[in-house]
């Protein structure tokens, strides 16, 4: 019984979520051979293959094509399908990243098989029993997955990436047979993000405000505190819908997922869709006029009060502490 895992490349070697997917794939069929597929340009991928070997992969299949210099989801799905036909794996696993989900959706469509995205747990069998995320993780679903092979993606951070050294993996290179139609959907250009500023997704400190900020101007005190803490400014959807902040600042299910050391949420009620974006925060401090606001049930600390008074007082206190 073999399992095939799809690996995406980050700037340096395999991407972290793909390594998590490999750990998940190993747990599906312990002790069985694990095959991995990575797209590369002709001749590339030797180092990548070695790293995958350290994560328990027994055979690395390098799909070579000039189209794989950039993302080409249909071409990659064709490569997966070719390997599925050759290896007849029990399951095909990818990271529950935007790209992992996208490529396996194409594979599911090409093979007319169901796909379970963002799984937390799964056990091979007919049908496969699994648990997956709904509502961006605010709700779980236990489900049966029919058909073969099983197609699934692994919810980010469901399992840690763990090294599992295998004897140097076999490396097999192949060129998938692709038609022009398979290459219509591919990245033709890259627009670099404007440099500078702390990205919300990576910030160690995030200070956010919701409808309680009252206006775009209400964010002045939030920006001040975020700057003092070297953090990023976030907001709720009520704020982006009102046009007070751009959507790039929105934290939540349909915004950015954050994982800071501390999240300071001011004037935000704590809707499940907002909380879906800040579950990764190590510490949550809520500032709210309402002692019964739902966000208090997810917060470690709270201040009951008007953010327009409390936030400037915190900024003043930080300046005072630094002056000492």
């Amino acid at each position: 019984m073999t399992v095939l895992a799809l690996v995406e490349r980050g700037p340096e070697g395999p991407d972290e979520l793909s390594l998590q997917a490999l750990a998940f794939a190993r747990s599906l069929a312990p002790g069985e051979p694990l095959h991995a597929l990575a797209p590369v340009r002709g001749g590339e991928g030797t180092e990548l293959a070695a790293t995958l070997g350290e994560h328990g992969v027994s055979t690395v299949h390098l799909a070579e094509h000039e189209a794989f210099a950039a993302h080409a989801p249909v071409a990659l799905a064709r490569a997966v399908v070719e390997l599925v036909e050759r290896l007849a794996p029990a399951a095909v696993v990818a990271a529950g990243s935007e790209r992992g989900n996208e490529v396996l959706a194409h594979v599911g469509a090409l093979l007319d098989l169901p796909l379970a995205t963002n799984c937390l747990e799964a056990a091979l069998g007919e049908p496969m029993r699994l648990t997956r995320l709904r509502w961006g993780g605010s709700l779980l679903e236990e489900a049966s997955l029919h058909g073969s092979p099983k197609l699934l993606t692994v919810a980010p951070h469901a399992v840690p990436a763990e090294a599992a050294p295998a004897a140097g993996p076999a490396v097999e290179r192949f060129t998938p047979s692709l038609t022009d139609a398979d290459l219509v959907v591919r990245v033709v250009e890259r627009v670099q993000a404007a440099a500078g500023g702390i990205s919300l997704a990576d910030a160690k400190v995030v200070v956010s405000a919701g409808r309680g900020a009252g206006s775009a101007e209400g964010f002045a005190v939030i920006e001040e505190l975020a700057a003092l803490l070297g953090g990023a400014v976030g907001c709720s959807r009520a704020v982006t819908m009102a046009g007070w902040r751009p959507h790039t600042d929105q934290v939540g299910q349909t915004g950015t997922k954050i994982a800071p050391d501390v999240y300071i949420a001011c004037g935000i009620s704590g809707a499940t869709q907002h909380l879906a974006g800040c579950k990764g925060a190590k510490t949550l401090l809520a500032i709210n006029t309402d002692p019964d606001a739902p966000i208090l049930a997810s917060a470690d600390y709270a201040v009951i009060g008007d953010l327009h008074e409390v936030v400037p007082a915190i900024s003043a206190e930080i300046r005072k502490a630094r002056g000492r």
Partner: peptide, 18 residues
């Protein structure tokens, strides 16, 4: 579900926040 520790009410809570 957590039981948030209330650091205080209004601006007087600032020192405890810090």
């Amino acid at each position: 579900r957590k039981q948030a520790e209330i650091l205080g009410h209004g601006p007087e809570a600032a020192p405890r926040v810090v």
